[in-house]
Amino acid sequence: MIHEAVSLASRTHRSTSDLRSIRQRTHFVPLFVMRKAEAKDGKYYYVGHVAAFDNPRLTTKPNADGTGTVKVTLSTLRLARSLDPELYRHLAG
């Protein structure tokens, strides 16, 4: 399953060449997501680990308080296993 994700967890900015370099190495990269409806609870769901990622592109988005912007990297993530359909319905619902 393909997911679009924004890399904000570390609050660091990586260049596209950095990401390509990381892709060439083997690492276990767990993927956690949060439902917008549960954002106040700070509850995350483990959906699997990233087997590959493609198409990294640099962009900006508004920062948390809306007073400026932060640099982020958007990328297509491919999970090692398909996401459980019931979990997907819960997260997307």
Rank of each mutant, 00 (worst) to 15 (best):
P62S: 04
R23E: 15
P62N: 05
H49F: 07
Q24Y: 07
L19C: 03
P62H: 04
A64I: 07
H27S: 08
H27K: 02
K40S: 14
A39V: 03
R25G: 06
V47E: 02
A64P: 09
G42N: 09
R35F: 06
G42E: 12
I22L: 13
K40C: 06
K40A: 11
Y46G: 01
P62L: 06
K43C: 08
K43Y: 13
P56K: 00
A51F: 09
M34N: 11
T60N: 08
Y46I: 02
R25Q: 10
V50I: 15
R25V: 03
M34C: 12
H49N: 11
V47H: 00
P56G: 00
K40N: 14
G48M: 04
P30G: 02
F53S: 02
A39W: 14
F32K: 02
D54A: 01
R35K: 15
N63F: 07
R25K: 05
R25L: 11
K61M: 12
G48L: 05
A52L: 05
Y44M: 08
R35C: 04
A64Y: 10
T26F: 11
G42S: 08
V47T: 03
V33N: 01
G42W: 14
N55T: 13
H27R: 06
K40D: 15
H27L: 12
R25H: 08
H49K: 03
E38Y: 09
H49A: 02
M34I: 13
E38D: 15
H27C: 07
P30F: 02
N55E: 15
S21P: 07
A37V: 13
K61T: 05
L19E: 12
S21A: 11
V50R: 01
L19S: 01
S21I: 07
R23T: 05
K36C: 11
S21E: 15
P56M: 02
K61C: 04
Y46D: 08
A52G: 10
V47K: 00
R23L: 10
R57D: 10
T59W: 10
Y44D: 08
K43L: 13
F32Q: 06
G48S: 06
N63Q: 04
R20K: 02
K40M: 13
V33F: 06
R20F: 12
F32N: 06
